[in-house]
């Protein structure tokens, strides 16, 4: 088992495995998203106070969860790669970053469109929203740093250091913004009153969250395959792979 894992840590060995896993995760993502959307739009009843607009949370909450999970996973892979000097880990963190940034953007966008009809404002400097915005900046910094360094090995290690510093900072940033928000209480809107959640809403959200997981894994695997091919372009097997693809 252990030696099998070590074998898979080689990009060349992981490439076909990722290719085999890809359709399964894509299929699961599509099926779960369809089920989740069905629950969100046809099963879940209209909310008494928020009307139809609350249906946004079925995409907003899973996207917000994913944006944070992916950052932690990215930092985890990056740190693992830094400690163990495995090439695949760095590629994995590169493959996750754009998807994480995309989910962060979706969380911000849908949050704004949910906030307008619910609280009467697109944007409030609330701790959660502000931290999410800073998280987007952290993703963009990570992607920009990796893109600016030519040598892939150096880019991986520099990115890993940045991701680790960032992951230490995210909770501190959240806490500091929350602290700041209590000081300026008059200016902000209280966003703490969450609507009480019915079981069917929870089901819809769970399905959508699972779909987001599967989607992230599928896209990360596809991007990982692309990165592996790019980095190993001079290796014989990669040339063969490209000529047959």
């Amino acid at each position: 088992m252990n030696s099998e894992l070590f074998r898979l840590a080689a990009p060349q060995a992981f490439f076909p495995v990722a290719g085999k896993m890809l359709p399964w995760f894509s299929f699961l993502a599509g099926a779960l998203a369809l089920a989740g959307l069905y629950v969100a739009f046809f099963v879940a009843p209209t909310d008494a106070t928020q009307g139809e607009a609350y249906r946004i949370i079925f995409i907003h909450v899973p996207a917000a969860w994913m944006s944070m999970f992916i950052y932690v996973m990215m930092a985890g892979w990056a740190g693992f790669g830094l400690a163990m000097n495995t090439r695949l880990s760095g590629m994995m963190s590169s493959a996750l970053a754009p998807t994480g940034a995309m989910f962060t953007f979706i969380a911000l966008w849908t949050g704004a469109l949910w906030g307008k009809p619910t609280w009467g404002t697109y944007w409030a400097w609330d701790a959660r929203m502000t931290s999410e915005l800073v998280l987007l900046f952290l993703y963009l910094g990570f992607i920009a740093l990796k893109g600016a360094i030519q040598d892939p090995a150096r880019a991986d290690r520099a990115g890993a250091i940045l991701a680790l510093v960032g992951v230490v900072n995210v909770p501190i940033i959240y806490f500091s913004v929350q602290w700041w928000n209590t000081l300026h209480q008059g200016a902000s809107v209280s966003l703490t009153r969450a609507p009480s959640m019915a079981a069917v809403m929870l089901l819809g959200m769970l399905l959508m969250a699972l779909a987001a997981w599967m989607y992230s894994i599928a896209v990360a695997l596809a991007r990982l395959r692309r990165i592996i091919l790019e980095r190993e372009r001079d290796a014989e097997w990669a040339k063969l792979q490209r000529s047959t693809a």
Partner: peptide, 21 residues
């Protein structure tokens, strides 16, 4: 790294948020 100046801002300014707050 090329484009170092602007990149430096993008990397460290978000990390400075707690100090500012």
């Amino acid at each position: 790294v090329r484009g170092g100046g602007a990149l430096l801002g993008l990397l460290v300014l978000p990390l400075f948020v707690p100090v500012l707050v």
